[in-house]
Design a protein around this nucleic acid. Structure first.
Length: 413
DNA sequence: TCTGGGGTCCTAGGACCC
DNA sequence: TCTGGGGTCCTAGGACCC
């Protein structure tokens, strides 16, 4: 019994959603049709391309590059700021629609999902019509276009949706691999990133077909487990199930600062602002954690981190803040920093909360304080209650970027 | 490169235990 | 001390995804 898997991918998601929303609000011009990117704020050192229109792509502008470089390639380039709330709403509308049609849907990222349609009656004959109907319904009702990739497994469906864009349906069944996938450059393969591609090139392996035809043991020798993964993917071999993603393994936030941090006091404030965000998210998720990691990035873009495991799990802002300070003080080499991050792992459900011997009145008080602050922020907005230490500091009292409900990608299918 | 922010997984080395 | 071998845990860093 053959599977029928769709991979649905929004074309230039952030930019398309921005365009659809503007048109809905009466704007005549369509930013998808001019050289335009969604990008961060350059003055606060977040200036990179997050999404690009097709005319922008024609200028050789790529996602992730600096707005400065993009602007140099195309002086008339328009830059619009991101609106993550809009993207979260657009994403939800899309997945809600897909879920009415497909028996099983796996949300893979804010703008991508897999759908297993194998159990739909007559799917073997009708999959093209079903895909076309879905694609057009999204376009007509939601106002943006998607690519749909179709195959027997998730890997091939995903590779297929990446073929020519926008507003297209592509198949990549096993019999088509040789013709449609093997001629592509090695780096186009899912999970063959920059580092892998560089090493492959040195081995004379240039295309996905080259990977497929290389002895699996040779790749395993060079790349360990990852070597087997790319060999299997290059041969179209993949059999994971379309399902709900697993539980979150960690919660964290990081922030690139508008100016370099050069002293402990400022660094501690930043850590506090990150604790506020991360701990609030922990409590919203009803999780507590035991492993805490502070990461730093300096002006040479060198990153490093320090972590520590504690005995009893916690979600307390003040407790985690003091751990974060300690980790930072231990790890910081003293050079100017452009980024600080905090991440909490080894999570457990909050229900498991055990009042340990060490629990005191003060920790109970802190719990109630956290709860109260959370409630106020929920009701009156994130910044309705903030710490006075941040006044005139030039720092945001609560730091950490995109606050989205969606489970992000895990790198594996 | 005037280079974000959210994730997961894998590996390697050292500590520790039996 | 002419010093085994395997398992597990912890930490740091790197690779990958969008």
């Amino acid at each position: 019994m053959c599977k029928m898997i769709f991979h649905i991918d929004v074309n230039s998601a952030f930019l398309s959603w921005e365009a659809a929303s503007r048109i809905q609000h009466g704007e005549k011009r369509d930013i998808r049709e001019i050289p335009c990117v969604v990008g961060g704020d350059s003055t606060s050192r977040r200036g990179i391309v997050l999404a690009k229109s097709i005319p922008a792509k024609a200028y050789n502008i790529s996602t992730g590059e600096s707005l400065f470089a993009a602007k140099r390639k195309c002086p008339v380039l328009e830059i619009v700021p991101p609106d993550y709330d809009l993207y979260t709403r657009s994403s939800k509308a899309l997945f809600d629609m897909i879920k009415t049609l497909a028996p099983s849907v796996q949300v893979y990222s804010i703008d991508e999902c897999f759908a297993d349609l194998s159990t739909l009656p007559g799917i073997e004959e009708n999959f093209m019509d079903i895909a076309k109907n879905l694609k057009d319904r999204i376009k007509n009702e939601l106002g943006f276009t998607v690519n749909i990739g179709i195959s027997e497994n998730k890997l091939l469906a995903k590779m297929a949706s990446d073929f020519k864009k926008p507003d297209r349906i592509h198949t990549l069944f096993p019999y088509e691999i040789e013709k449609k996938m093997w001629p592509l450059k090695a780096g186009e393969l899912f999970m063959a990133g920059r580092s892998t591609t560089r090493k492959l090139e040195r081995m004379g392996i240039m295309t996905i077909g080259d990977i497929a035809r290389t002895d699996k043991e040779i790749l395993k020798g060079y790349f360990k487990k990852h070597g087997e993964t790319i060999w299997r993917y290059a041969n179209g071999l993949e059999d994971s199930v379309v399902e709900r993603p697993a539980e979150m393994k960690g919660i964290g936030n990081s922030t690139t600062l508008p100016f370099d941090v050069t002293d402990h006091e400022t660094a501690h404030k930043v850590l506090l602002s990150l604790c506020e965000m991360t701990c609030m998210r922990m409590r919203q998720a009803k999780k507590m954690g035991r492993v805490f990691s502070v990461s730093m990035k300096n002006n040479d873009f060198i990153s490093y981190s320090h972590q520590k495991k504690i005995f009893h799990p916690t979600d307390s802002t003040s407790e985690i803040y003091s751990i974060a300070k300690e980790l930072f003080n231990h790890a910081w080499k003293g050079e100017p920093l452009r980024l600080l991050g905090l991440r909490i792992t080894d999570l457990c459900p909050r229900e498991n909360l055990q009042l340990s011997f060490f629990d005191s009145d003060s920790s109970e008080k802190e719990r109630r304080l956290d709860e109260t602050v959370d409630q106020i922020r929920e009701k009156y907005g994130l910044y309705s209650i903030t710490r006075s230490a941040f006044l005139e500091s030039g720092l945001k009292p609560i730091a950490g970027g995109v606050h989205s409900d969606y489970k992000m990608v895990s790198g594996h299918l």
